[in-house]
């Protein structure tokens, strides 16, 4: 989204903010386009299923222009430097959990997320945090799936119980 760590208070134009303006415009266009593709159903109300989408698309478009103007003037608030590698660990953990949840079950998959998050916050040793996470997730699974009948994906580990 933006280059990491640059303190760009006075930099004009603010390129990241221009990116936001472009994204808003893109969303507006997608909404308008998708709405124009839908078939209409006649009803008694003059305000149909397409009215609000068009209004919102129009609003987003105007906001995109205003955002672009602010960006050109460099009016966005100052941003703190960011530390991206830890963020990627958390994101990676979420992706790993999402991809594996249905296959290997709640505990193992959530263990991955747990370990990745702990790693992001500076607890390094994955070989320690992963098993810890699996045990924690398994306890949570037992409590909710067995104790409270909440259906959570079961994998090889959960089937033992």
């Amino acid at each position: 989204m933006s280059e990491s760590g640059s303190r760009n208070t006075r930099r004009r134009p603010d390129r990241a903010a221009l990116g936001i303006a472009a994204a808003l415009a893109a969303v507006a266009i997608v909404i308008a386009w998708s709405t124009s593709q839908a078939g209409g159903v006649a009803g008694y109300s003059p305000v149909g299923p397409k009215t609000f989408p068009y209004i919102i698309a129009g609003g987003l478009f105007i906001l995109s222009i205003l955002t672009a103007i602010e960006a050109m003037r460099g009016h966005f608030p100052e941003r703190e430097a960011q530390d991206f590698p830890p963020m990627l660990w958390v994101l990676g953990g979420l992706v790993a959990q999402m991809l594996t949840m249905k296959t290997i079950g709640f505990s193992l998959s959530t263990g991955l997320l747990f370990a990745a998050t702990a790693r992001a916050f500076g607890k390094g040793a994955l070989w320690k945090t992963f098993p810890a996470g699996v045990v924690f997730a398994l306890l949570v699974w037992l409590m909710f799936a067995k104790g409270l009948q909440l259906t959570l994906p079961a994998g090889p580990l959960e089937r033992l119980f």
Binding site: V90, G93, L94, Q97, L99, M101, K102, F106, T110, L113, F114, A115, T117, A118, A120, F121, G122, K123, T129, G133, F136, A137, V140, F144, L150, T151, L152, P153
Partner: peptide
């Protein structure tokens, strides 16, 4: 400690989501 706190938050946040919606989507 933050590593455990936030790891725990993410575990429960995802638990609530999966528990309420068990639908599968093929990527």
């Amino acid at each position: 400690p933050k590593p455990w706190l936030y790891a725990g938050i993410l575990v429960f946040a995802t638990l609530g989501t999966i528990g309420a919606d068990g639908s599968t989507f093929f990527l």
